[in-house]
Design a protein around this nucleic acid. Structure first.
Lengths: 366, 366
DNA sequence: CTGAAAGCGCTTACAG
DNA sequence: CTGAAAGCGCTTACAG
């Protein structure tokens, strides 16, 4: 049985269609008696307005699109952290949208954004959230010449007028370095996100890299960093390179919750005890690591909150929002000071200030 | 700038709107010259038909809904395998839908399927794919009294007229048991999916359990099984129980790709070498385990293929499809025969026959 | 081979 | 406080 129409509801309630419409929208004062009759009819007929008709007339759909290219997925290069991270964002967006009464069309695949163009052009959605915006991303251009509001979930590497929500990866890198330096570490390595994230020009990869590098340099310390594929081999290769570059490495900053298992396993294989021989700080979504023993010293990337903030930015407007980084101490970092030494006070604050979307040089690691 | 309308395209091409429409749909012979002019106008104006108007007139939307309740997600009990598995299904569905020119609305959250009802009632979608159908699932009832075609991705535990796609978990359980028994194992345990999957009446949990149990029983062997939460503690608790019940356990059948890391770690902690002391067979999506060393002996749950099959079933109609189980030998199973003993021939075939959707007793483990 | 007209189911000015 | 009418942008019989 196809759904009832507004005219049927009207007849059933003994009113005109417009009155039903006004009861539904609340755009007109309706007498209590009439409203009750109409609402009863709606319930009895199980009436649900036709979305297409409504969108044609009202010019809105209460649907937004979430465009997540998921680079490499279809080619089979399925990246664990990639997927895990994405799942949190995707469900975060869907949940937040539902709270506003919006549905979400999920668009995957890169390929120039043809699918996005179709959905936007066909006025199928009232708004658009872009994930994984890369350098020279066609979707950004599409959005700039379109009337459909859009928000980037993740700060684009290039200057753009498109509003964005992101996590303060610069603050995160700084906090990690300052925490380790404050405990006496002098040889600190960065296990960064996969090479592809740098090649694609994904903002967070570069921002974290540069932040760790510059904070170390400001402290007069050398920087050691390697992008790492999220695989056993990836962990091995990156660790080999880091320890070859600096055999005295005493601490590691790790980007990505998906790297943790692999890394811990690999360190164990190498006989490195955490934190006795090597301190580890993780920057990643804690949703998937909070059950890990020992508790990780980490900076949480609040994926669900970011997703929700993106939806709110779409709804309310605004230009940018950077969620602050907070370092949570766990059991994977040890002091690297000779016994009996007093801790040197550091300038570390527990929370990063929201830094301005500054400095967007195009420099890639190596 | 809002998108062009069909009337503007028509004017630009010097034809009537209906002609533009017919060029677009191919439902009428059009002279070559006219078609060329119209197509040029479409291109020049960047015309994209208004989705709402089209759905109002044509009675279809080229959108389907994917309803994935994701039980426990929002409550914070984020289950690794849960998420991982889901991601594969979700993206599999979206990709397959796009191949048919369909967009996908993703609906999360359980709660009686109110969101599903709204989308279906509003005729926003041409079809519906249900994930994680549980016992007494309201969505199933909704679907049965609605005109919108639906497919369950995962066989419902209860009899239903709703078509479904699933993996042959019964065959998978049988193959695993027969493989192990064929190699001389006599004390075999099942590390099953989390307790919640049994409580919710998710079909795959029960079907695998019963299959392993009955295959063992037919071979005259005892059955040992435990549902396990996907966490370090979950693995510990289940292993404790299994080994307490049968200290001579020589082989483990494990359900879920997300359990592997945790299990291996825990076994190592207990000094159990795989496969020297304990053989392990995994039933799970290989997309996320194929890089694991040593290569797992496993039965692949082909999540992407299942997702694609569900979309095709929705498109073409039909009643049910069960993808066959195949056991792939890796390095995690050893023979359990005294040296010098000949291998006993088994009746194991490498591939399960598609079993009929038989036997749906409501029996739960324990 | 092409066009003029009706109508899909809503919402919202315009009237009373 | 409520109704009759126009019109959103399409598609498809109906005409020629």
């Amino acid at each position: 049985m196809p759904s009832a129409k507004i005219s049927e509801v009207a007849r059933h309630a003994g009113v005109s269609p417009s009155t039903v419409s006004y009861v539904l929208s609340g755009n007109r004062r309706i007498s209590e008696a009439t409203r009750a009759r109409v609402e009863r009819a709606i319930r009895e007929l199980n009436y649900e307005p036709h979305a297409g008709a409504r969108s044609l007339r009202a010019g809105k759909t209460d649907v937004i699109a979430l465009a997540d290219p998921l680079y490499d997925w279809s080619s089979g290069a399925v990246d664990k952290p990639y997927i895990l991270g994405h799942m949190a964002y995707v469900y975060g967006v869907v949940d937040a949208a539902r709270r506003r009464g919006w549905n979400v069309i999920l668009i995957t695949g890169g390929g120039g954004g043809a699918a996005v163009e179709k959905v936007v052009g066909g006025q199928m959605v009232d708004g658009l959230i872009l994930m994984e915006v890369r350098v020279n991303d066609e979707r950004l251009k599409l959005v700039e010449r379109s009337a459909t509001p859009a928000v980037a979930l993740g700060m684009p590497s290039e200057p753009t007028d498109v509003p964005f929500v992101d996590f303060d990866f610069e603050g995160a890198g700084r906090l990690c370095v300052e925490h380790l330096v404050g405990l006496g570490h002098r040889h600190i390595g960065l296990l960064a996100s996969p090479p592809g994230t740098f090649e694609k020009g994904l903002g967070y990869a570069h921002r974290l890299w540069r932040s760790v590098e510059s904070t170390l340099n400001k402290a007069g310390l050398p920087f050691h960093g390697r992008p790492a594929e999220t695989s056993t081999e990836g962990a091995q290769v990156a660790l080999d390179a880091l320890f070859e570059e600096e055999p005295a490495l005493s601490a590691l900053i790790v980007n990505g919750e998906g790297m943790i298992d692999l890394l811990m396993e690999e360190l164990q294989r190498r006989g490195k005890e955490v934190p006795a021989n090597l301190s580890v700080v993780v920057i990643g979504w804690s949703g998937l690591t909070k059950h890990i023993v020992p508790r990780l010293t980490h900076v949480d990337v609040p994926a669900l909150e970011m997703a929700s903030a993106a939806v709110e930015l779409l709804a309310r407007g605004g230009s940018a929002e950077l969620l602050p980084a907070v370092l949570v101490e766990g059991g994977t970092v040890a002091s690297n000071r000779p016994a009996g030494t007093r801790a040197r006070p550091t300038s570390t604050s527990a929370t990063s200030r929201s830094s301005t979307p500054a400095e967007r040089r195009g420099r890639y690691p190596q």
